[in-house]
Design a protein around this nucleic acid. Structure first.
Length: 601
DNA sequence: GGGGGCCGGGG
DNA sequence: GTGTACGGCCCCC
């Protein structure tokens, strides 16, 4: 028995002898620093909860199914502590197979926690976080015995017991950015016909290279005989560089699928994964994502859309925004001409291609830290976080917190619940149309984190919402009259409260920090908390969310409107006349100068 | 004003 | 994969 300490990069599961085996992908720390690791855990089992109408009958009915075992669990649910049947199944895929049959039993009222993917369940139950360090005990196993082909030098390790989370610093990751150029003389590239002519690579450790089938005096150009050789060389470089992150721009929907299609046509195996596996594609709603096992493929287009507020999100535009520099530009429909022409034109194309990959590396350096912190906060894989809307992050954060305090996680809405919810919409924030004209002496007022503050101060939460009760014990929302218990502190308010407290702590620490790098890390951490707190209100109003409660959404905005209107009236007494208001702040002109300016809020 | 359709990025 | 999730803008009635 030995132990391994590593940065947890990613997680999935495979099936061996009809049983699920969790795989933790990591980078080793300590004396084998930098080597890739795959930890296997064969001991984790899928489970769901059942609320019975008739316990005895229910257990009898459940025994008819091919399930592993039946037990009991005590959990908090809708503000009460209750006992639930815990059903342990043989395989994660038995859950979607059996859940409808179980739910439809006459002895069953409902089933719970049947829609939490197995790998996510693992991270939550074992209290481990991606992008942080983990320690495991176990034994190394022979690499070849698991039929891993063409893998990078990787340690495969079978785990005993539980993984231990290590309180660790922000890990330093190796990134490799890539970009392809295609010869497409007729409109948009068609993988059936148009070959890849260049693959540019750029790492955060100094590698800069362009693979191509044409020659160039430029020292960073490496010429390969054929397109197939170029793809093989790309795989070779990824293996030798062994990056943790593979980055592209719109690579989920362009580069990766294109590479896959060309590689299939040319019969090249793109074994980019640390387990020797090829490219995989997942449908995620309206779009695709491309994944490489053991490395994290990040598409910066998605992150740019999430974190930057721009009119357009071309690589050029994003780069300009972050670095205020113009990139080399070659119009897409002229690339084939630059390529065919040769000479200086070709040289420009090489430069452009490398510049794209280098820009991706630089943009990554700006955008990745926030996603990293959100990953460490929410506790779901970086791959998922980089493709998740903030509202979803909030939900997964709450799911983890619910598990920590022994609360049951509400179900996702069924399609009928969803369509019913979609019909209702909570009224929004107060908006006052701007007063026309040129104004002078403008003052702006805004509430710091208005909605999070309301949720906390009014204890707005699904588990504190009451239909009946003594008004004295309740906060009552204006306009609508929704009531919320003053005590105990609700689930969502307590979590937002902790987030805001932690944020204050980080900001103080930040102010006192001397080291600029430390300051920056703390700043990103507090930004991540801010994002999470500010999005938390959304879980009440978005029809797809588990903690959806229209009364909570309505109450929050009603209090918000109430506060801002009262503040505007109040401000008039001090000589301010509001000229424009929106949700959590307003602009006013100062009419009198005999009153001293007071602090806002 | 509200529902349906389309598009984003990439070459 | 304990799958199938966007949001803004334009057009048209």
């Amino acid at each position: 028995m030995e132990s391994k300490r590593f940065v947890l990069l990613d997680i999935d599961y495979i099936t061996e002898n009809d049983k699920a085996v969790i795989r933790l992908f990591g980078k080793l720390k300590g004396n084998e620093e930098g080597k890739s690791l795959i930890v296997l855990d064969k001991s984790f089992e899928p489970y769901i909860y059942v609320i019975p109408y008739d316990e005895e009958q229910c257990i009898e009915d459940l025994n008819e199914f091919d399930i592993n075992r039946i037990g009991w669990a005590r959990k908090g649910y809708m503000g009460e502590i209750k006992d639930f049947i815990k059903l342990t199944l043989n395989h994660p895929q038995d859950v979607p197979k059996l859940r409808d049959k179980i739910r439809n039993l006459d002895s069953v009222k409902d089933i719970l926690e049947h829609d939490i993917p197995f790998y996510r369940r693992y991270l939550i139950d074992k209290a481990i976080f991606p992008m942080a360090e983990v320690e495991v005990d176990g034994t190394c196993i022979d690499n070849k015995s698991i039929n891993f082909m063409c893998s990078t030098d990787v340690c495969v390790f079978e785990m005993n017991g539980n993984p231990k989370p290590i309180n660790s610093e922000f890990p330093e990751l190796k990134t490799l950015s890539f970009d392809i150029e295609v010869r497409n003389p007729k409109g948009m590239p068609q993988a059936e016909e148009d070959p890849i002519i260049m693959i540019s690579l750029s790492s955060n450790k100094g590698l800069q290279k362009v693979l191509s089938t044409k020659k160039s005096p430029l020292e960073y150009v490496e010429t390969l005989k054929t397109e197939a050789h170029m793809l093989e060389r790309f795989v070779e470089i990824v293996k030798s560089e062994n990056p943790d992150l593979l980055m592209g721009y719109n690579s989920d929907n362009f580069d990766m699928p294109y590479i896959r299609n060309r590689a299939t046509k040319l019969n090249v195996k793109m074994r980019l994964g640390t387990d020797g596996s090829g490219l995989k594609f997942m449908r995620r709603g309206y779009t695709n994502s491309a994944l490489v096992k053991g490395r994290i493929h990040v598409d910066l287009y998605l992150l740019s859309r999430r974190y930057l507020q721009l009119d357009r999100y071309t690589l050029e535009r994003v780069y300009k925004e972050l670095f205020d520099e113009q990139k080399v530009d070659v119009p897409g429909d002229e690339i084939f001409e630059y390529w065919d022409c040769g000479g200086e034109k070709l040289e420009t194309l090489f430069k452009y291609s490398l510049d794209d990959a280098v820009s991706v590396t630089k943009i990554g350096e700006k955008l990745l830290p926030l996603s990293m912190e959100l990953t460490r906060l929410v506790g779901q894989p970086f791959f998922d976080i980089a493709r998740m809307a903030t509202g979803q992050m909030v939900e997964w954060y709450l799911i983890r917190k619910a598990y920590e305090i022994g609360d049951m996680v509400p179900n996702k809405p069924s399609s009928s619940q969803y369509s019913e919810r979609r019909g209702k919409k909570a009224a929004g924030g107060y908006v006052m149309a701007p007063v026309k004209g040129l104004h002078e002496n403008i003052v702006s007022f805004d509430f710091r984190s208005l909605y999070p503050s309301i949720i906390i101060s009014k204890n707005v939460s699904p588990d504190t919402l009451v239909k009946e009760g003594n008004d004295n014990d309740c906060n009552i929302a204006p306009e609508l009259g929704h009531k919320f218990l003053k005590t105990p502190v609700g689930f969502v308010p307590s979590i937002i409260g902790n987030i805001l407290k932690e944020r204050v702590r980080l900001k103080t620490q930040m102010k006192n920090a001397v080291n600029p790098r430390e300051k920056h890390v703390l700043d990103v951490q507090q930004q991540a908390l801010k994002r999470l707190a500010n999005s938390m209100y959304g879980v009440y109003g978005y029809s797809r969310f588990r903690w959806y409660r229209i009364e909570c959404a309505e109450a929050v905005t009603a209090w918000g409107r109430d506060f801002i209107k009262k503040t505007m009236l109040n401000a008039e007494d001090y000589g301010f006349k509001a000229i424009y208001a929106d949700t959590d702040g307003f602009y006013a002109t100062f009419l009198r100068d005999d009153v001293e300016l007071s602090e806002d809020k």
